[in-house]
Structure formats: structure tokens, C-alpha cells
Amino acid sequence: MKFKFLAPVLAALLAACADSGANHVPILDGPPTAAFQGDLAACQGLARSQRQFDHETAGAVVLGAGAGALLGAADDHGDAAGGAIAGGLAAGVAGAVNAGERREAIVVECLQGRGHRVVG
């Protein structure tokens, strides 16, 4: 099958996104306090503990694969499997980016909640 190379590529992509957003080191308005490094590590740990792929991402992958299969089947070459893989992969990547952004926001809000002057 011509798509057998996609499994290792997808696995590498998911591994690269595993800590996405959780390692965010925000910009502070002023010098860091003595407690900043400890609080940063705790907030990053909290963000890292959040699930990378939730039900919303899984649903997007299924819908992306379905849409890709339909578009692939409608193509002159009729490649529904390739369309499904491409659609599912695109939706999975978009979900990973969204999860990374949520994790980054968790780090920022957690530090702000601990009294640090985080601006981004």
C-alpha cells in the first residue's frame, strides 16, 4: 500500500506535539520573583497533565477523514483512502495546534493566578 509510510510520520508528528504549549515560558512585566521558577514548573506540569487529544479532536479527525474520503472519491482518480488519510491527518494536526494553544493559556493563567505579572 502506498500509504504505509504515513504511520511513522504520524507517530513522529504526534510525539513532537506531545508537550506543545506546556513548555511555554511567558513574558513578564518586570523582573521575576523568587517564586517564579517554582511556580512556572508547577503551572507547566498542570498544563502538561491536560489531555492532548480530547473528544472534540477525535470528532474532528473522524469528520476530516469522512470529508476527505468523499472528496477523494469524487476526484477523477477515485482515491477515497488517500483523501480520508489526508483529511484525518489535517484535522488531527489542527486539533493538536488547538490543544497546544490551550496548554499555553493554562500556563499563563496559572501564573497570573499566583500573582505573577504575565503579559504573554
Rank of each mutant, 00 (worst) to 15 (best):
M1A: 15
M1L: 04
K4G: 14
K4M: 10
F5N: 10
F5S: 14
A7F: 13
P8D: 14
V9P: 07
L10V: 15
A12G: 14
A16H: 13
S20E: 10
G21Q: 05
G21F: 03
G21Y: 04
G21L: 04
A22L: 10
L28E: 12
L28W: 11
G30M: 03
T33L: 02
A34D: 09
A35H: 02
F36S: 02
Q37V: 01
G38N: 11
D39C: 02
L40M: 00
A42M: 06
G45A: 02
E56T: 15
T57I: 07
A60I: 01
V62R: 03
A67Y: 10
L70M: 07
L70W: 03
L70I: 03
L70S: 08
D76W: 09
D79W: 10
D79F: 14
A80N: 03
G82L: 07
A84C: 13
I85K: 01
G88R: 04
L89F: 15
L89S: 12
L89P: 09
A91K: 06
G92K: 02
V93D: 04
A94G: 08
A96W: 00
V97S: 00
N98K: 05
A99Y: 07
G100T: 04
E101V: 05
R102F: 11
E104M: 14
A105G: 14
V107K: 04
V107T: 10
V108G: 05
E109V: 09
L111K: 01
G113F: 00
G115W: 03
H116Y: 03
R117E: 15
V118F: 14
V118A: 10
V118P: 13
V119K: 12
V119W: 08
